[in-house]
Design a protein around this nucleic acid. Structure first.
Length: 618
RNA sequence: GGUGUCGUAGCUCAGUAGGUCAGAGCACUGCCCUGUCAAGGCAGAGGCCGCGGGUUCGAGCCCCGCCGGCGCCGCCA
């Protein structure tokens, strides 16, 4: 159990019978001391968190991993020489503080240690960043001196929480007979669709390892191997641009099971989520977590990872506005597209400038604009540039149809590409919630998004069509039972046994039931335009494995950094990574990445030409 | 690749529409101080105002380019 004060942990120097190990550096942890310890002789070790030097008496806040305790030095020459973050060892006696001097802010506030001996274990230079929970330093300086940043209680707490999260997940999984199995990080490209990080291979000049984007193929091989229940806290690598919730190397809680259906995987995932949030967020997750289909999520929220902490659902107006003269809408409707709306409660009070800002906001997202109508707070009359383009009939029923009241604003999106318009409204929905303050910051809203499409167009033309198809999840994802025999007839409509778990608008995990039959896999490859030769070249080893009695299997992977970020209340996964990288892919601490020497370049074989396939590799 | 925003002392920041504008708090150095808890007081040191160019009589402030941090779009489950 994580505690604010970390008080209940026993120091390693103390044996079970209470005896102190000989030569121990310390006898107690600073944050563990309480009134009951008054009169006890203790030796502590830690850092000078703060000093208050009154001349004849000096107070030091001594900090170790367990917390802080006040130590008192009287008539001490040494005391005046102490500086922040000196590492010290003190011997003394725990005493109750004089009446009236207790500090109720501190768990150790009833006591103090009156020092009889002080050793400076090591000194500290003037600090490049203050070890102070009140002062928030810039990201670059924090990362450059991450080891000092982590001395602060907030950042330290985030890493300790992550450690406990790992432990909780392992407890749930081991209770269910899962095996923790490691897989290679020097391997070949996996079919996740991102760019690979590549590693030159000295022993085979001109050839390269790829760092895994996930252990996907290996975990499926482990199912063929009969392990049946696998998990791993796995480092994954994807060479794409950074975000607040994306780093080039990140961690998944990766899980795969044999002889299971989608419901089995979901049940397990829910058990893990409930255990994590129950302990670390003090939140009871009511199970089962609600499910909505991918199409439902898009229709109601304009997102495949909807934030359900607030309403503000989209309304499909395609049929309501059928026959409109307004070109922007009619063009979309005639082309078989979509017109929809989302309501901003109280949005009518926005100034012209604020409403114009929405246009800029929409353009920044690649849209042409964001049509709107405001309903007068007094009369309910529809106003705004779009209003005069709509018929009196359409305007009259608009409020009721979209669920808007006088004083609200209604935003519209229209496109012949349904998904594009829905996504614009979905983004507007999030922005509305932010600007209107509709988000309950303390709420946890989970949902599953199931029945995802199997395929999407690889190149999307303005009308939503395209040339070929690409797998939405990955090419080993099974179609649902209904589409098993027919996905080729309407690839754009085919659904997959693919599921994502979403928390407050963050995708925290996703998985699928895999294809385990060679014939079905062949048909999927055919549709994706992957020739037998290509398949053999890229994942021949998997297909070969599937010749030998592969079990039905499926799994899920949690974005572990995101899970820990949410649990710790952070707004970036950097907060739950010990040594994260900056947006530019640099590590300000080590200075990585660095150029290599000509010698390294030569040895690594970076410029070597690979041997032709026929030649011997050795 | 696109875009927004930030960059002033070791740290956090203030510097009003170009004209005593090189400033504050903390940290640092020295001194004083026996009950503080973000201790207090006195004194001091510390800055190519991110870099380069331009406009101007004059630029921390305006313009252009570059570099770096962060956010977003693209990309990426």
């Amino acid at each position: 159990m994580i505690r604010e004060d970390g008080a209940i942990r026993e120091d390693g120097a103390i044996r079970e019978n209470g005896a102190i190990r000989e030569n121990a550096i310390r006898t107690h942890e600073a944050g563990s001391l309480r009134a009951r310890d008054a009169g006890t002789a203790v030796t502590l070790a830690g850092w000078v968190a703060r000093r208050r030097d009154h001349g004849g008496v000096t107070f030091i806040d001594l900090r170790d991993a367990s917390g802080v305790v006040q130590i008192v030095l009287r008539e001490s020459e040494q005391a005046h020489a102490l500086r922040n973050e000196y590492c010290v060892r003190v011997t003394g006696e725990v005493g109750r503080r004089p009446a009236g001097n207790e500090n109720p802010e501190l768990p150790t506030g009833e006591v103090e240690v009156v020092v009889t001996g002080l050793d400076v274990l090591s000194e500290a230079e003037a600090l490049p960043l203050p070890i102070d929970d009140q002062v928030e330093a810039g990201d670059d300086i924090r990362l450059r001196y991450r080891y000092l940043d982590l001395r602060r209680s907030g950042p330290a707490k985030a890493l300790r929480l992550r450690s406990r999260a790992n432990q909780i997940a392992r407890e749930v999984l081991h209770a269910r007979n899962f095996n923790e199995i490691e897989t290679p990080t020097l391997t070949r490209s996996t079919p996740e669709g991102a760019r690979d990080f590549l590693v030159p291979v000295r022993l085979q000049p001109g050839t390269w390892y790829a760092l895994p984007q996930s252990p996907q193929l290996f975990k499926q091989l482990l199912m063929v191997a009969g392990m049946e229940r696998y998990y791993q806290i796995a480092r994954c690598y994807r060479d794409e641009d950074f975000r607040a919730d994306r780093q080039p190397e990140f961690t998944q809680l990766d899980i795969e099971m044999s002889f299971v259906t989608q419901d089995d995987v979901i049940e397990l995932a829910e058990a893990i989520v409930a255990a994590l949030w129950g302990e670390l967020a003090d939140a009871e997750v009511s199970l089962p977590i609600p499910r909505l289909t991918w199409h439902e999520a898009m229709a109601r929220y304009g997102s495949d990872k909807p934030d359900l902490r607030y309403g503000v659902e989209l309304v499909d107006l395609t049929s309501y506005l059928h026959g409109t003269d307004f070109r922007v809408f009619s063009a979309a409707i005639m082309a078989g597209g979509y017109v929809g709306a989302v309501v901003m409660p109280g949005g009518a009070v926005q100034t012209r400038k604020e409403l114009d800002a929405w246009q800029e906001w929409a353009k920044a997202r690649g849209a042409k604009g964001l049509a709107y109508v405001v309903l007068d707070a007094e009369t309910g009359e529809a106003r705004g540039p779009v209003a005069k383009n709509l018929s009196a009939e359409h305007l009259a029923g608009l409020g009721d149809t979209v669920g808007a009241k006088p004083g609200d604003a209604v935003f519209f999106a229209a496109s012949q590409n349904r998904r594009e318009a829905q996504e614009l409204l979905g983004a507007a929905r999030i922005e509305i919630a932010k600007r209107a303050g509709l988000m309950d910051e303390d709420a946890w809203a989970f949902c599953w998004v199931v029945d995802a499409p199997m395929f999407e167009r690889d190149t999307v033309l303005p009308d939503g069509t395209g040339e070929g198809w690409t797998a939405v999840h990955h090419p080993f994802t099974s179609p649902t039972a209904e589409w098993m025999d027919s996905f080729e007839t309407a690839p754009g409509d085919a659904l997959a046994y693919a599921y994502d778990i979403v928390c407050n608008g963050n995708e925290i995990g996703g998985g699928s039931i895999r294809i385990h039959r060679g014939d079905l896999q062949r048909r999927v490859f055919d549709l994706l335009g992957i020739t037998p030769e290509e398949a053999q070249d890229k994942f021949g080893f998997l297909l070969e494995a599937f010749k030998y009695g592969p079990p039905p299997h499926g799994g899920i992977a949690f974005g572990w950094d995101r899970v820990c970020m949410l649990l710790s209340g952070a707004d970036s996964i950097r907060e739950v990574i010990a040594f994260p990288k900056t947006r530019g892919g640099l590590d300000p601490l080590t200075g990585a990445p660095t150029p290599i020497t000509p010698q390294q370049r030569l040895e690594a074989g970076v410029d070597a030409k690979p041997k032709a396939p026929g030649e011997s590799a050795s």
